[in-house]
Design a binder for these strands. Structure first.
Lengths: 190, 190
DNA sequence: ATGCTAATGCAAGTCGCCTTGCGTTGCCCG
DNA sequence: CGGGCAACGCAAGGCGACTTGCATTAGCAT
């Protein structure tokens, strides 16, 4: 039985699968390049040649399967849309894979350009559409800034996970949405 | 001239100074433990015995000099207080040292407990006092959550630096404060 | 001053990330 | 059904973080 040489796409899939296995079995620190390569029955050098760095590898593994899509709801009411979206995001950030992805996205890599920022910014950009619809519907002020609003809700979610490593939870996301929508000033007209 | 053996507190100061020098001269990646030790005229082993890890060393160097205090203003108006505070924070986050400190604060260290979270959480906790005063003054809703509001403004600042590495700038901080205070809904009573 | 002890110096070594040069082989194309 | 060539395997090595065991010495108390 020859060592079952894997190449091209099959090798790629085998490595990504091995990476995810190790990731969920032993966590981020357990998924060393050597371990992944061994588990996939591939040489470490090949991994580096294809992915360039451990970071790219893990990130590729994570994003390939973790395409939770984070769908953009369209219920007709801004608050409902935002609550659903950011609740889903909070849920994602409470999973091991979601947290790992966020942590990796934060790592700087001065060598060559990478596509980590894109993962989150893409999704947040799409989220801005919900706000835009709210503006057009007159639910939000005409001069509201969709991007700013999205960042105002997602930012705290991200930094909470990164800084304090605390769970975020759907309730937190909902409170953030309400604060961003209504502000902290006293409600006139009760 | 004997190698001028440094010990105890003098050694500590020499190493921290060398670390800051390298930090500002060559950036985070330039401040390797070996380089810092050499520059301080100290053996690498001694650095590890005293600080335990490179991270602790850099963090110690950063916080020892970078105690910008981030004072809590008290002008009598919430918005003014918040704008001043978060503008100062934004400014800090636009310096190389501030960014380095934030990045290091985000690094997880499963070995032993560390005191990195504290640096930011301390300052944000104190910032909540501004909000509390605003509530007592009636400027804010009685059921407003000081901690949440502080996170709603600081979170985006942090995650912007961490994720997109973009400058934050005072204007961004100010817009966040206004959004959090007034919300995105249309203003009644113009 | 003189000792004692804890704080250094030093050497050697582990581990993970990553690179390079060269031999070997899978795989697609003609 | 062969080539040919890129895609792999392999060995060796560099670099930085970190550890360990042992020799040495600075510095404080006496």
């Amino acid at each position: 039985m020859p060592p079952l040489r894997r190449r091209g796409e099959r090798m790629r899939q085998a490595v990504l699968a091995a990476a995810l296995d190790l990731l969920s079995a032993e966590g981020l620190s357990g998924a060393t390049v050597a371990a992944v390569a061994r588990a996939a029955g591939v040489h470490e050098t090949s991994v580096y040649r294809r992915w360039g760095s451990r970071e790219n590898l893990i990130l590729d593994a994570l994003t390939s399967r973790l395409d939770t899509a984070l769908p953009i709801p369209d219920t007709g009411r801004v608050r409902e849309d935002l609550v659903r979206f950011f609740t889903a995001l909070a849920h994602l950030l409470d999973t091991a894979q979601g947290r790992a992805l966020l942590r990796l996205s934060v790592e700087r890599d001065d060598t060559l350009e990478d596509r980590r920022g894109p993962y989150w910014s893409e999704r947040l950009d799409r989220a801005a559409a919900m706000v835009q619809r709210g503006i057009e519907r007159g639910e939000l002020a005409a001069d509201a800034d969709p991007g700013l609003l999205v960042e105002a809700v997602s930012g705290p979610l991200f930094s909470r996970v990164l800084l304090s490593d605390a769970p975020v939870g759907p309730a937190y996301a909902e409170r953030l949405v309400d604060l961003t929508l209504d502000g902290a000033r006293p409600r006139r007209r009760s």
